[in-house]
């Protein structure tokens, strides 16, 4: 029984380890740097993390279905370019914003269409990654163009009460995502499709529809994040969002979402995104060479994936213990 309890503690530790690590890092940095534990700095980190959180909520659903979307960084770039191009054509805000959101949705649905045909998500979205950024370069001719639209600038830099607009958007997206994943059939079916697709299909779940929907959703969220980033940077650039998809995936995996599908939480994803950004922020405040920050992020991700696999192994071990306790003679 002692071993059993140790396993439960182990399970608890790996499940909530990220939250402890985030807390410990915040405490340690507060001691190490006088600039860390300030409202302004926290807002700064949250604002940095906001676009990541917005996309990572979508990535959580995609990875719950055992998929992945590598095209979101390129989508951000294309959206960014198209926003300034559309404004350049004299289109009004109320047309431009829905148009680029629709583009994101369509791009996601295209990914979803090929994935539900049975193509590997990695390859489908990798193809979309180069395609979308290529279109971004073609449309913009490689140039960044400033954006002057007040609404877009407000989305990226404005405030709602004491909070910046991107933070509010990220909170809204995360809350909706959390409710959908945790409380609705759609969330449950996403996990079921990723956990064991054949079982989900046998139980009458529309596996193809779920896949289309999760890729459509991350496309829509990617476009939203693209608008926010365009507003924050103040220009539309085909170089926006380079490697963004990797940061989003890192946040999601760090948050305990299984790479093999079936297990995912929005709270974990948000904590993962905050953790990456707090680490970067803390190291910056300490004056660490920013290139080392990339190294640190990489090592943290590696550690997270290690824990992710350890979780799986622990649960399997735990299962074996339960089975041994069962009074069934072996065959």
């Amino acid at each position: 029984m002692a071993g059993f309890d140790r396993r439960r503690i182990g399970l608890f530790a790996v499940r909530y380890g990220l939250f402890f690590a985030l807390g410990a890092w915040v405490v340690a940095m507060s001691i190490a740097s006088e600039h860390f534990l300030t409202w302004l700095n926290f807002l700064n980190v949250a604002r940095q993390a906001a676009p990541i959180v917005i996309i990572a909520v979508g990535m959580t659903f995609v990875m719950a279905t055992a998929g992945i979307d590598l095209s979101v960084g390129s989508l951000v770039a294309l959206v960014s370019v198209l926003v300034v191009t559309f404004f350049g054509l004299g289109l009004p805000t109320e047309i431009v914003i829905p148009a680029v959101l629709a583009l994101g949705l369509v791009s996601g649905l295209v990914n979803g269409y090929f994935v539900q045909l049975g193509l590997p998500p990695f390859v489908v979205t990798l193809a979309m990654l180069t395609t979308l950024r290529g279109i971004g370069f073609v449309v913009s001719d490689g140039y960044a163009t400033p954006v002057r639209d007040d609404f877009v600038l407000w989305l990226g830099r404005g405030q709602i009460g004491p909070l910046h607009t991107p933070i509010v958007l990220a909170i809204v997206v995360a809350v909706i995502g959390g409710v959908v994943l945790g409380k609705t059939r759609f969330g449950l079916y996403s996990l079921a499709v990723g956990g064991r697709e054949e079982a989900a299909r046998a139980m009458g779940i529309n596996v193809r529809g779920i896949k289309l929907a999760v890729y459509g959703a991350i496309g829509l969220l990617g476009a939203l994040a693209g608008i926010v980033l365009t507003g924050r940077l103040g220009n539309g650039s085909p170089n926006a969002g380079i490697m963004l998809e990797l940061e989003v995936i890192a946040a999601t995996v760090l948050g305990g979402t299984s790479l093999f599908g079936g297990a995912a939480t929005i709270a974990g994803t948000v904590a993962g995104a905050l953790f990456i950004n707090f680490v970067r922020n803390g190291l910056n405040l300490l004056g660490v060479n920013p290139f080392w920050v990339q190294v640190a992020t990489g090592l943290i991700l590696l550690l997270a994936v290690l824990l992710n696999t350890v979780v799986n192994r622990r649960i399997t071990e735990w299962a074996r213990v339960l089975r041994a306790e069962e009074p069934e003679p072996g065959p």
């Binding site: 956990g195 064991r196 079982a199």
Partner: peptide
């Protein structure tokens, strides 16, 4: 139907 492999989702 009770499937031979049970058709259960392990994570759920």
């Amino acid at each position: 139907m009770v499937y031979q492999d049970f058709a259960l989702v392990p994570e759920l």
